[in-house]
């Protein structure tokens, strides 16, 4: 058995008083897996995603991604970890309105110190691969929801991350655009990309994931491999 890409060991995350958002969760994800984290609101899905992305730190327990102890990283190291290993896709795209599509996509690479011309070549390639290259010089506000999410995925893939994290990637899209994004994620996974999705959407999970984890009240209620529907 290969080394897990993600390993959460007895992770608990508490916010102030009240019950923990995650409670003693342990989880492993192998390279090349497509994991969907499911659960109702408040079950701890986004908390788990934030912990894997290094956006937050566990109260107790350890988070290891691609051999990196994410729970021990400081702010600067955590930022470097994200741009080297993680691609993030958000529900509301989080594209920067004052940058062109190409500039949005290039940004993670430029933050990592890549030169503009190299970043431009990579961005053009990604935008072409995701079918939005004709919008390269446009601003995100002029794009449809599906197109914006494709641009967001392109941005997430810019630094060739080991792990693509997607938080409700179809949550803000109409049905057609949602289908479009689902297809895209499936294709990426088929190409070997490890993907972790957080979603309410069972259809998305069924279409894109090889494994689902159900969270309930901050604990893993079920963990099952499923056949990927295509």
């Amino acid at each position: 058995m290969s080394t897990p890409l993600i390993e959460l060991h007895q992770v608990t995350r508490r916010y102030d008083e009240g019950p923990p958002a995650l409670n003693d969760v342990s989880l492993s994800v192998e390279p090349g897996e497509a994991l969907a984290i499911l659960g109702p609101s408040g079950s701890g899905k986004s908390t788990m995603l934030n912990l894997i992305a290094g956006l937050d730190r566990p109260s107790t327990g350890t988070v290891t991604v691609d051999g990196v102890r994410v729970d021990e990283l400081g702010e600067a190291a955590s930022a470097r970890y994200r741009r080297a290993r993680i691609g993030l896709v958000f529900q509301f795209f989080n594209l920067l309105d004052d940058l062109t599509v190409a500039d949005n996509v290039m940004l993670p690479a430029q933050l990592a110190g890549m030169g503009r011309s190299t970043a431009e070549r990579r961005a053009t390639e990604l935008l072409g691969r995701l079918g939005v290259d004709r919008h390269a010089t446009a601003y995100p506000g002029r794009l449809s929801g599906g197109e914006r999410q494709r641009v967001a995925v392109a941005r997430a893939l810019m630094n060739r991350p080991a792990l693509l994290l997607a938080d409700e990637p179809t949550g803000a899209l109409d049905t057609a655009s949602g289908e479009d994004v689902m297809r895209l994620l499936s294709e990426l996974h088929a190409d070997g990309q490890t993907v972790v999705l957080v979603t309410h959407d069972l259809v998305l999970a069924e279409r894109c994931a090889t494994r689902t984890v159900h969270l309930l009240d901050g604990q893993v209620a079920s963990d099952s491999a499923m056949e990927l529907l295509r």
Binding site: A53, L55, E75, A76, A79, R80, R82, R83, A84, L88, F90, N94, L96, L107, P108, L111, A112, R155, N159
Partner: peptide, 9 residues
């Protein structure tokens, strides 16, 4: 967003 994309402090 910038920080999520890897912008350091």
């Amino acid at each position: 967003v910038h920080k999520a994309l890897g912008m350091t402090p």
